[in-house]
């Protein structure tokens, strides 16, 4: 498959995407677990990850920040499975709103001529699913929605 195909499952709050990349799994794994993230968590004019730091081991944390539609954002999480070059699992939370973390799982499979990378982002919930929401919270989430939006500004 030449480009990523991502599918959303509404009832379960899951995104699944797969892409084939013509480099070995070791190389892909490095791009998932290093500052290189700032070169691909990017969509020109929509979101731009400027900083990424991570302590890549089970229990270690990561944090990313940048600009989405002109507004700053920060994401963070914890690595829960680190199995190079086959599998990487980490939690994902926007900093600020008290949302339970969602979970990002990357699975790398060696295929002829490269790597099949499968992404599963699960447990994605909308803010209003949780009680005790506050206005400030809604604003942070709005920022995240804009950040993640594909619509060009």
């Amino acid at each position: 498959m030449s480009t990523a195909r991502a599918i959303a499952d509404v009832t379960d709050g899951v995104i699944v995407a797969t892409i084939d990349i013509r480099v070995p799994p070791e190389r892909v794994f490095r791009a998932l677990t290093s500052e290189e993230i700032i070169q691909w968590w990017v969509r020109p004019g929509v979101f731009d990850t400027r900083e990424w730091v991570g302590d890549v081991r089970v229990g270690g944390r990561w944090r990313a920040s940048g600009i989405g539609n002109g507004k700053p954002y920060t994401l963070e999480g914890e690595f829960t499975e680190v199995d190079p070059p086959r599998k990487l699992v980490h939690t994902w939370s926007p900093v600020g709103p008290a949302l339970p973390p969602s979970i990002v799982t990357y699975t790398l499979e060696q295929i002829e001529g490269g790597t099949r990378l499968t992404l599963r982002h699960s447990g994605i919930v909308a803010p209003a699913m949780f009680e005790n929401t506050s206005v400030g919270w809604e604003v942070s989430l709005e920022t995240l929605v804009e950040l993640l939006s594909a619509e060009a500004a």
Binding site: T3, A6, A17, R43
Partner: peptide, 13 residues
Amino acid sequence: YRTFWQSSLDQLK
């Protein structure tokens, strides 16, 4: 989120 990942994975490739 779907668009975020689709776009990011394409960029990674």
